Amino acid sequence: MGAVYLVRHGQAPAHAYGVGEADPAAPGLTELGFAQARRTGELLARLVPTFDAAISGDLPRQRATLFAVLEAFDERPAHEVDADWDEYALPASLMTTAADLYADRAAYQRVLDAGLNGWIAGTESGEETFVEFLARTRAAAQRAAALAGSGRNVLVTSSAGTIGLLIAQLWGIPPADWPAVSRTFVNASITKVLVGRSGLTVVSVNEHGHLAADRIATFR
């Protein structure tokens, strides 16, 4: 039996979410985000002797998190990029309001949830449909699982929406309830999925006690 460790990216700057102007030279994470990812790497190094594969999505915050996590390991597998682990893009109607609302977390979340509900129902457009997002998340998980043979450990760094959607699929949670699952994920938290003959089995979700203990846990 193998295992896939899914790590949500560390805290990212606002422009990573399409809010404000992005500096092409800016790092994918904030200073706190790097600290979160390194602390998660330290915990994983106590739990896992080595990773046999290391995968990230193609977003800067996901790549930066993977490299920061792996700093805790003497032996590091080659970095593999699988863009199917990327986060969903904001629905089109939110792109014009995101910058104004991002500073007010509660207001931003209300508008985001409304936009996501429309996207899931097919009444809100985006760069991809929700059905396409669902399919690519499932495909990415299957590819990671294929690398997690008997006794093998795979590291994946992704985002809350993508990891949350995978967990929702594995637990049979209706698509309409997926956003509520995703917004509980803490930056640099760990979700563990076992890979066996019967398929994928979730054994832990959103582990972040190591971050909370040092008071560096954040949601955004």
Rank of each mutant, 00 (worst) to 15 (best):
P60L: 11
P60M: 08
P60Y: 15
R61M: 07
Q62S: 15
Q62D: 02
A64P: 07
T65N: 04
T65C: 12
L66E: 05
F67M: 09
F67L: 14
A68I: 11
A68M: 04
A68R: 03
A68V: 09
E71P: 00
F73S: 12
E75H: 13
E75C: 10
P77F: 03
E80Y: 00
E80R: 05
V81L: 15
D84M: 15
D84G: 10
D84P: 00
Y88S: 10
A89N: 15
A89S: 15
P91I: 03
S93V: 13
M95R: 15
T96R: 13
T96C: 07
T96A: 15
T96L: 08
T97L: 11
L101Y: 03
A103D: 15
A103V: 10
D104F: 08
D104A: 12
V111D: 07
V111N: 05
A114C: 00
A114F: 06
A114S: 08
A114D: 07
G115L: 01
N117T: 06
N117Y: 09
N117F: 04
N117I: 00
G118M: 02
A121E: 11
G122E: 06
T123I: 02
E127L: 09
E128Y: 01
E128I: 06
T129K: 00
F130V: 05
F130E: 02
V131C: 02
F133Y: 14
L134G: 04
L134I: 00
A135V: 01
R136E: 04
T137G: 15
A139S: 14
A139D: 10
A140Q: 03
A140G: 05
A141G: 11
A141L: 14
Q142R: 08
Q142F: 04
A144T: 01
A145E: 09
A146S: 08
L147C: 03
L147R: 14
L147E: 03
L147G: 00
A148C: 14
A148D: 06
G149K: 06
S150C: 05
G151Q: 06
R152I: 00
L155W: 14
L155H: 12
V156E: 00
S159E: 05
S159C: 06
T162M: 03
T162Q: 01
I163K: 11
I163F: 09
I163N: 12
G164R: 03
G164E: 03
L165H: 07
I167D: 10
L170H: 12
L170Q: 10
W171V: 01
W171A: 14
I173Y: 15
I173P: 06
P174V: 06
P174N: 02
A176Q: 13
A176D: 10
A180K: 14
V181C: 02
S182Y: 01
R183E: 04
